[in-house]
Each structure stands twice: as C-alpha cells, then as structure tokens.
Write a protein that binds this DNA or RNA. Structure first.
Lengths: 128, 128
DNA sequence: TTGCTCACTTGCTTTTTGCAAGTTAGTGAT
DNA sequence: ATCACTAACTTGCAAAAAGCAAGTGAGCAA
C-alpha cells in the first residue's frame, strides 16, 4: 500500500494494465482460464495466471475445480469483487460519452445517467 | 487502443500505476507540478512529466503559464477530466467498505451509498 | 497407452518504471 | 548586470514488469 488515500488503496488492487480487464471478463460471465485468454485484448498466459492468483489472494476472486472436467478451474467474483461493478459502470458511462461507436446499449446508459449527474453535483459542491 | 470495449477504452487513458493518482490530485485542487510531486505516494519527476503530457494530449488536463510567477505552469481538469469524478467516487466508496481506517467523511459516503446500491441492482439485473 | 485439452510455468527479450543527477528559464536581491 | 534561488522539466542508467514462445504435468477419452 502506497498511502492511506482511498483512491490509492483501490489502485493497489487494479491499477495496472490487465487486472481490471480480467474483472470485466468475470462480470461478463467468463469463468475459465481459456475464456480470459480469448478476450480481444490478448493477455499473455503468464500475466493472466499471475493476476488471477493475486485477485484470489486479495479476496476479489475465488476459484474451484470444475467437477465436470477436472482439468478446468472455475473462477468467479466474491462479493468484494462484485462491489467493483459501480466502478465499471462509471467507466463505461465515461467512455460512452467520449468515444463514438462503442457498443453500449442505450437503455443501460440512460439508467446510469441520472445517478451520475447527481453524483457530479454532490462532489462538485464538496470541491467548491 | 486495445479493443472497442468501453472498459478497455477507459483503461487506455488511466490503466497504469500513476495517471489516476494525478487525476485525484487535480480533483483535490492541486495545480502545480511541485504539488503533485509532494503527494504521499512519491511519483518520480520523469513519470509525472510524462503523465501530465499524455493527459493534456488526451484532453483530460489543460495547462497555462501562471502569470504571477512565470516559471510555474498551472494545470487543471477539462470537462472531460471532471467527468471522471464518478469513477473516483466509486473507488472511494469501494475502498471505504473494505479498508478500515481510511480518511473519508461519513456524510460523503452516505450520499454516495444510495446511488451505488441502485446501480448495483440495475447491473445485476442485466447480468442475471 | 496414446493423443488431446487445459492450466499453468519457464526462459528470454523488450518495454516501462524508478532513481539520481543534471539543465534551462524566470525572479528577486545586490 | 550578475548571482543565488526556485520551479519545471530532461537525461542516463539500473531495476522491475510485460510480452512472447516454448515447454510441462494433470486429467480425460478412445
């Protein structure tokens, strides 16, 4: 841990190039090692292995042997991991605003937008 | 850009060890190079210089010469940068939940919590 | 028992980060 | 005008992390 700042604390978990993309994959329902490997960004096997390990140690991910095929390990998010969803949501909302042509559903964004507008007002009031 | 995924798009801007901490500093009201250098995490001068440059190129930060003392450059967030506030907020909320003893004001968190709970319900409904 | 899949590991190269020591430009005092 | 001082970088090199290709070992199916 680099400091007692909450932002810094969070970044110690996923402030690197790959960890958050693995979390995204898990949120999208991916479960197995090869699923993560198949993602468009193209993570390397050693990096993926390392990140899954760290996420598990940090209590964000848990894994168990897949009983139907014991060579496979099934990964999933813990409650602590699922609590990262709002961060993902806000990243998506931000990207949708500033990048044209991204594949995000309109109805999803509309739902987010009201919450987001309120949040911005809250925080800007604090900063003023 | 590594893919057309919105999460990946966002991470291309700040998916590294330092960029988001600089954004946090700006949100906290820091303006000058030496202010960022003074942050508790201890960023190196070359990294800071590089990140400020990239943030400016990416339209998240803007800078101008500080007229009262022309050796100093004054940095600030653009609207695009300020729109990252909700992400910061959600990071803080997550950290507050999982790390004891972090310095976040209670009243601030209470405000955030309702929005967050609603967001989680929205998204989990989508994922089910 | 052979061959296949899957989840890793290993060894090596390239890129990024970290650190210390400059360099350049404005400023204020002499 | 020159000197000391400060602020914002830049440079060079060492250390760490990421990227890539080629293994390895454990289950499974024929």
């Amino acid at each position: 841990m680099r400091s007692d700042c909450p932002v810094s604390y969070a970044l110690d978990f996923f402030g690197d190039k790959w960890t958050f993309l693995v979390i995204r994959d898990l949120l999208e329902g991916k479960k197995f090692y090869k699923d993560f490997l198949g993602s468009k960004e193209g993570i390397a096997t050693n990096i993926l292995s390392d990140r899954l390990k760290k996420l598990e140690v940090n209590g964000i991910v848990e894994s168990k042997v897949y009983e139907k095929l014991k060579t496979m390990k099934q990964y999933s998010l813990t409650p602590k991991g699922k609590d990262l969803i709002p961060i993902v949501v806000e990243m998506m909302a931000w990207s949708a605003k500033y990048k044209t042509g991204l594949a995000i559903r309109r109805d999803f964004l509309d739902k987010v937008e009201n919450n987001r507008a309120q949040l911005i007002r809250n925080i800007e009031a604090r900063l003023a």
